[in-house]
Amino acid sequence: MKSNAMNDNHETSSNIAGKVLVVLATALFAIPLVWMVLTSLKTPEQIANAPYSWWPSPLRWENYREAVSAMPFLRYLVNTLVLCLGSVAGTLFSCTLAAYAFARLRFPGRNLLFAVLIATMLLPWQVTMAPRFLLIRELGLYDSLGALIAPTFLGNAFYIFLLRQFFLTIPQDMIEAARMDGASELGILWRIALPLARPALATVALLQFVAAWNNYGGPLLYLNDPQHFPLAYGLERFVSSHSTQTHLLMAAAVLFTLPIVAAFFLAQRLFLRGIATTGLKG
């Protein structure tokens, strides 16, 4: 009885400590975000003359209207969404297959191939950019969103490595049992590994979505026609070496960030479902 009570006490106090800590940590992460939102409502004069003041006075909601009307917002948004969804599809397709093979199959040359996979990430983009560009050009993809989407169907070392780490945690006996039942490897991947790895897949989808959403340098290199440019490009128009329009930049950055909140909520439901399924089967 006694020890049990103590244990309960101990639990609640550490629970409370955990809760206080998480609120504090979140506050620290949120402060720059709050600053961003507040700045997006300031007048340019306030930013110039009192850069360290917190509260916008007066509130300038027009920043948002001006930021949106400064660019073909809808066109950029559509381009961005095409880019995001296309590359998420490509990434999930190519990376899941390769990751499963690296994690769960034993075929000759696997370890060598995996070492090569890691090595492909080690050379800085500065020296590989030009030849890669010329290749994409030769493939006839220059100046189309395809230049950015097609390569995602050919795998991405980062996500393959990440998914491999997740597949590694699937209990080997579940896979062996399926094999004994005569299931094909694709069948095992589809029916056993993928459902178990749903949180990981949601993670990869989210990360690739965000990466494509934020990608700015890539589109600028591979696209020429402003009709094809994504939202991230629209954001840069407020920046200049001598005359950055900080109020509009911040308003655009807030608008730019908001849709990701939706994507995150969506992906998060998948994490939770992942926990539930694993819990039932595990």
């Binding site: 390769a98 499963y100 093979a101 199959l105 034993r106 075929f107 795998g155 490897e185």
Partner: peptide, 10 residues
């Protein structure tokens, strides 16, 4: 299976 699945990446 290994070669097919890593195929796209290769």
């Amino acid at each position: 299976a290994g070669l097919t699945m890593t195929g796209p990446w290769v």
